[in-house]
Nucleic acid binder design. Structure first.
Length: 488
RNA sequence: CGGGGUGUAGCGCAGUCCGGUUAGCGCGCGUCGUUCGGGACGACGAGGUCGGGAGUUCGAAUCUCCCCACCCCGACCA
């Protein structure tokens, strides 16, 4: 394995693959398109998960778990939904194997299922089949349930974290008495996603609504957060759907109002996935590897001891004790690396893994009462007294958190262009970047542009100003101001 | 599913065209020693049904046929 990563500007995708592997985040599973999330990668996901879990619990949501298996017929209940997912469903057709003649196994034809079972690509259908039982009165509403689960979508082209056949996510499914309430929920959750992305992952996002062609199959409206990756392509980082009464109709879920009328309930669903880990890598990584935002970093501070003999080793170890204790008391996730690799090797290794702060402690520091503190974001090294270090570390971590966000936002803004001619549009898209421009609202325009440039409408941003704008393609008055980009 | 490619040690590869002793190399791994403030070095060592099957041959990683797997490029997607 070569020591240097592939060049991030020329071979971004090679760079990504290597970072995922060499930072110890994930590996390929034995079945094509599957992913093994390794401990370091899983801690990262866990921290993201814990952060969001706290947010939804604080807003009245509760967790539950619904089955992996869904009757095949359920998917067909909602017309658009089935069309959207049919092509990528794994199907269970048999329930057992039997020994083969030559020491293998074959599917036992006798075990064929009467009704085949699909592996959930998303859980709307099972959940709404249950909601039908649980909802009778307006008193049962709103029903605010989330689940953390795996889902399977049989993808043709996969990449670790960004698109895998099986992935982990959370899916919220809520039921409400009124359309207004459902709409409020949809947007409230989108706001939580924005906070998760920006305040925790330090990934700046555009918020907005999807066009009809890009919306979730079965939704009335899909809202999203869209981020720009280091190669100037867009990544959809989270979606929140207003499902209207589509699933209530499909599963016949009604409730009695206060004045004893029977009405269909209103629904939302929303999800973020392990793709967020990919977003962090693609947003903050640099030529040395990962750079993790402190709030979600599995290890926030790594300590590299330096010594030449047993005497020095002991001196360093003792010297570190109070420092470790102080960090533990302030809730900092610190790790000492006592492996027998050389210090230089460790520096590179932990930089690859993206640990925000590194502390070096050697004989010279012990003698002077110092430590060396190095920032992963800027590479800057400073020599601090031990006491200063204890005091400065939380502040440095905060600095890095906001610094990474600011850096990413600046990069995104520099590469988001307002253009008014299709020529200019094509140039920007080809070079890489986001385009903000007018769109006449027609699906045909959208499809033609996609065909010609590979760029899609990532969203109609909430802060759009379509007045006076012309459509970039047709020249007609714009119905919306939209953001175009090539997407993952 | 179409087009292209690759299967040899944990990983990356050479050897295959032109069959011939004991199948190599780099990284990694193990033991010991010297190192250690930006990817250390030496010595010794472990590790292979050469993707699978059948065939040709005195002899097959190498030639022939069949099968399998995976990767890359085109139509879908969080």
């Amino acid at each position: 394995m070569s020591k240097k990563l592939p060049d991030r500007t020329n071979d971004f995708s090679g760079w990504y693959t290597q970072v995922v592997s060499r930072a110890g985040l994930a590996d390929h599973g034995p079945v094509k398109g599957t992913m093994v999330i390794k401990p370091y990668g899983f801690q990262l996901w866990d921290n993201i998960k814990e952060s969001f879990d706290a947010m939804i619990k604080a807003t009245g949501h509760v967790n539950a778990y619904f089955p992996l298996f869904i009757p095949k017929s359920f998917l067909a209940r909602e017309a658009e939904h089935v069309e959207g997912f049919a092509k990528e469903c794994a199907v269970v057709t048999h329930t057992r194997l039997k020994a083969d003649d030559d020491h293998g196994v074959v599917v036992d034809p006798e075990s064929k299922l009467e009704e085949e079972i699909i592996v959930r690509p998303t859980s709307e259908t099972v959940i709404w089949s249950m909601y039908k039982k649980w909802i009778q009165s307006y008193r049962d509403l709103p029903l605010l349930i989330n689940q953390w689960a795996n889902v399977v979508r049989w993808e043709m082209r996969t990449r670790l974290f960004l698109r895998t056949s099986e992935f982990l996510w959370q899916e919220g499914h809520t039921a409400h008495a009124t359309a207004e309430e459902a709409q409020t929920e949809t947007l409230d959750i989108l706001e939580l996603y924005r906070q998760l992305a920006e305040d925790y992952l330090a990934v700046p996002v555009f918020t907005g609504v999807k066009t009809d062609s890009e919306k979730f199959a079965g939704a009335n409206k899909t809202y999203c957060i869209e981020a720009m990756m280091g190669d100037k392509r867009a990544l959809q980082a989270g979606t929140s759907h207003n499902l209207g009464q589509n699933f209530a109709k499909a599963f016949d879920v009604t409730f009695q109002t206060k004045d004893n009328k029977e009405e269909l309930v209103w629904a939302t669903s929303w999800g973020v996935s392990t793709r967020l880990v990919g977003a962090v890598i693609l947003t903050h990584g640099d030529q040395k590897g990962l750079r993790l935002p402190p709030r979600i970093a599995p290890i926030q501070v790594v300590i590299i001891p330096i010594f030449r003999n047993e005497e020095q080793e002991k001196a360093v170890k003792d010297y570190l004790l109070p420092l470790m204790e102080a960090m533990e008391n302030s809730g900092i996730r610190a790790h000492q690396d006592w492996t027998d690799n050389s210090p230089g090797f460790k520096f590179n290794e932990w930089e690859m893994k993206g640990v925000p702060l590194r502390i070096e402690v050697g004989p010279r520091d012990v003698e002077k009462g110092n430590v060396v503190v190095a920032r992963r974001d800027s590479g800057e090294k400073s020599f601090l007294s031990k006491e200063e270090a204890v005091e400065q570390i939380p502040k440095l971590l905060d600095d890095i958190q906001t610094g990474l966000f600011e850096q990413a936002r600046q990069f995104r803004d520099e590469n988001t262009h307002i253009v008014s001619t299709y020529d200019k549009f094509k140039k920007v898209i080809q070079k890489g970047g986001f385009v903000r421009c007018g769109w006449d609202g027609s699906e045909k325009t959208e499809a033609t542009i996609k065909d010609q440039t590979k760029a899609t409408i990532r969203c109609i941003p909430f802060d759009e100003h379509p007045d006076g704008l012309m459509c970039i393609f047709s020249g007609d008055p714009a119905k919306h101001e939209v953001i175009f980009a090539k997407a993952y």
